[in-house]
Write a protein that binds this DNA or RNA. Sequence first.
RNA 1: GCGGCUGUAGCUCAGCUGGUAGUAGCGCCAGAUUGUGGUUCUGGAUGUCGAGGGUUCGAAUCCCUCCAGCCGCCCCA
Length: 432
Amino acid sequence: MQKLSTQPYKGTRDFLPEEMSVRTQIFEKLHRTVETYGFRRYDGPILESAAIYEAKSGEEIANQQLYRLVDKGGRELALRPEMTPSVARIIAGNAEQIVFPARWYCNVNCHRYERPQRGRVREHWQVNVDIFGSEEVEAEVEIFDLVGDLMAALGATPDMWIFRVNDRVLVEGALRNFVGVPQDKLVGVGMAIDRWEKVDQETRHQTLTELGLGAEQIGKLEELVQMDLTAYGKVAGDEALSRSKLAKIVREGLSQAPLKFDPLVMRAFTYYTSTVFEVFDASPENRRSIFGGGRYDDLASLFTTKKIPGVGFAVGDVTTWNFMEHHGLLPKPDLGPDIYVFGTSPDYRAAVRSVSRALRREGLRVEPALDDPNVRNGLKHANRLGAKYVVMIADEEFKVNSAVVKDMVGSTQQTLAFDAVPGFLKQALQAK
RNA sequence: GCGGCUGUAGCUCAGCUGGUAGUAGCGCCAGAUUGUGGUUCUGGAUGUCGAGGGUUCGAAUCCCUCCAGCCGCCCCA
């Protein structure tokens, strides 16, 4: 009979224990850092009503990248392509009982139907971090500082990454006042800015011309995207400048993160309303966005009349993995068992069980043999498992209620009474 | 959705212009080593050559279609 394929579905990945251990360690570093900022972890369903993505996520995601399905009751559902709409729904639905400002984070898998390639798959995991219910600039400062600390937690030094920031408030002001872009073309021109470095000048001109910009306006736009924050703020106009959180943060030096103003950072999600940022790999060979985020001041309006502003970002496992791998920062797999216990005869199984239980009471990672290998095979198996220590109960030792405790790394061994084994190994493993 | 490259042993791969698959490396099994793994040496096993079709006396090799992977485009995290 024809067997089914063992390959994971296109764009998805199996995580064998070695890889899972690396992924877990990466996320644990991120979680610990996020929690030092007072964030609380939540979770939510992978299935959502498709409608929540159609309004706010952006057309491309809703129309082409959404995994859609219809349940048996005819409801239009989708696998979440990102977490922000879900968390906005959860926040809006529970707003009466939530203490604002709320600092929430999660670790979820998201699905997007697209062509897999470097840094992009169909299922990825991300840590999603948001502060809800504050329009204060301090929310951005906290997020920016957190981003800096997250990168440090991954082992990244400042030269490895670039923290590009922009503010859509400034962009809109500048496009309106300096370039003279009409209201209904702001989004289109914004998208053109987003793609600025990815297309050649001719394509860019064509796009902008199609949006109704004249040669003089295009010239001004080209001037604009070269400006530093001071010049950009001036042409954006007083009103935009006074509303811009980014301008205030930079002017007053509120964040300790290495912010770099970049007029080309726009981000695709239509729901961002103010600050937007992207963390880039500084290495020329891996020059790509690792993650990004921004402020969205009316996302909850989909669910409630309450105004619940938010600012946040998501760190994905794929791009983070690529970054860490590229810079040699990936942690080594940390897999059990620390100790492999075996006896060479069925008569010793009770002793194997009882020693194993005693070791576990010390909190150690213990794997007892399920059979009775000879010395050679028992040690061989322990070696392949990567166990750091072996407890071996063989004929000579069993006679005197003892076991050989062998250090598999240092190749030293000693015979200890059963009672002495747990204390000895606990201390030995703590020392490592 | 579009384009490029790739698909041969468990893994990494060699296999020239078609002649019926490799003493390859790693891994695996066994022995040296009937109380010692990891190192070393010796021996051994393993393939529907991604799938289907076509050309040919003959296809891993050439052609077509499909599938999958990688990379890029579109777009996006």
